[in-house]
Structure formats: C-alpha cells, structure tokens
Simulated assay, not measured.
Amino acid sequence: MKRQLTEELEHDFFFVHRSIVYGVLRKCGIGFNHPDYDDYVQVGLLKLVEAYETFPSDLNQEAYFYQFTGFAFQKIRWAVIDEMRKSIKNGERELLLGETLDQSLPQAMIEPDSDWLIWELLPSMMDCLAPKEQLYLKDAAIEQLSISEIAKKQGVSRKTVYEWRKRTAAKLAHFRNVLEH
C-alpha cells in the first residue's frame, strides 16, 4: 500500500512520530554533539516518511499504531547504520587521499626556510587557480581548516572540497620544480 503524507497531516505526523528518529540515533550512539548529527536526523526523517508511505496496514486503527512504531524504528535504524558505514568508508578514503596529497607536496613546501619563496610565488599560484580553488587554498593553507570545516564554511559537500583539492594539487604541480630547486 502506497500512501502520501499530505500537508494537512504532516505537522501532526511529525509531532507524534519524530521521537522515533531521536530514539534510533540514541540507540546507535549518535549524540547531538556528533559532527554529522543533523545529517543523521535528516536521513531518519526521510526514512520515517518512507515508512509511513510503505506501511502495509491502516494507521487509523490503534492496534496498527504500535506496529508502525516498530516498523518505522527498524527502517530508520537500518538507514542510519548504512549512513554510518558510508561515513566510515568515506573517512578511510579521506585518510588515503590525504596521505596521497601529502606525498605529492614538494618537500620545500614543508621546510620552514623556504617560506619566503612560497610567499613570493603565492600570487602566481593563486592566478592559476579558479576562484573556488583559491578559497580552498586559503582555507586549507592559511586558516588550517579541515575538509569538513571548509565544506561547512563554503556551503558545499565534502566531496566538492575534495575535488577542489585535487584540482588545486594538479594545477600547482608545476610549482613543485621551482620549490625543489
């Protein structure tokens, strides 16, 4: 049975059932101070609506109300666990990508006595970058922000920031020779 959550029912539905999402998050060990808490809440709310739309019995009968709670809880729990797994996989990829970028940076960029050369080359480095890549470089190099912090600051996904980082590293690769000699 496929039902639609209408705008008239929406407010009451979320008032009654929103706590299921928070219960799932608590059960999965995701507290409100978790960096991705809001993302998990959104996943839970989407799955709550999906559970409403796919629940096989009539929700107007009281006996099915409690069955729906268990049905929705399980559906949300599975979705949150899947998101947690994806997050762990992405974290592992981030570590590998970070190590790869660190290895591709010229040693002179890491050594402190070459700072003056970097500052001399910085304007020409910035000129070869697109505006978003320039923002990435400023946030990463000068403000020392993490990928997640940059994504939040710029209002984009972390994947987008990784793309900026990859393109920035590729465009600045030709400066490597200058810094190494």
Rank of each mutant, 00 (worst) to 15 (best):
P112T: 05
M109K: 05
A108F: 03
L46R: 08
N90R: 15
L96Y: 08
T69S: 07
S104V: 11
I118R: 06
E94G: 00
E50W: 10
L48H: 02
L59C: 06
Q42H: 09
T69K: 14
S87R: 15
R85V: 14
L105G: 01
N60Q: 13
Y136A: 06
L121W: 04
S114M: 10
W78R: 12
K47Q: 08
L96E: 11
M109G: 01
E94L: 15
D113H: 13
D58A: 11
W78L: 14
L117K: 02
S124R: 07
G91P: 06
I76F: 01
Q67I: 00
P112M: 05
P106M: 07
S114G: 05
A63I: 14
P56H: 02
Y52T: 11
S57V: 09
M84T: 09
E94Q: 14
T100D: 04
E111Q: 12
M109W: 14
L46F: 08
V80P: 01
K47Y: 14
P56C: 04
T54P: 02
G91S: 12
I81G: 01
Q61P: 00
V49T: 04
G91Y: 11
G44I: 06
G70T: 10
R85I: 14
G91N: 12
T100G: 00
Y40P: 05
L101R: 00
V43Y: 01
T54Y: 02
N90G: 00
P106H: 08
Y66A: 03
F55P: 05
L129Y: 08
L46E: 06
W78C: 11
Y66L: 05
C128I: 15
D113T: 12
M125E: 05
Q103E: 12
L101M: 06
R85C: 06
V80I: 15
M126E: 02
V49F: 01
L122W: 13
G98H: 09
E111P: 01
I76E: 01
A51E: 08
L121V: 06
P56Q: 06
R93W: 14
Q107N: 10
L117S: 03
R85N: 09
T69C: 10
D102M: 10
Q74L: 13
M126G: 05
I118M: 11
G91H: 09
I81C: 07
A63Y: 11
A130W: 00
F65S: 03
Q134M: 10
N60V: 00
A51Q: 01
L137C: 05
E53H: 03
L137E: 07
P131I: 07
E50F: 06
K138V: 14
D82M: 05
N60M: 11
R77K: 15
D82F: 08
P106C: 15
Y52Q: 03
S57I: 07
S104P: 00
G44N: 06
R77W: 07
I88H: 08
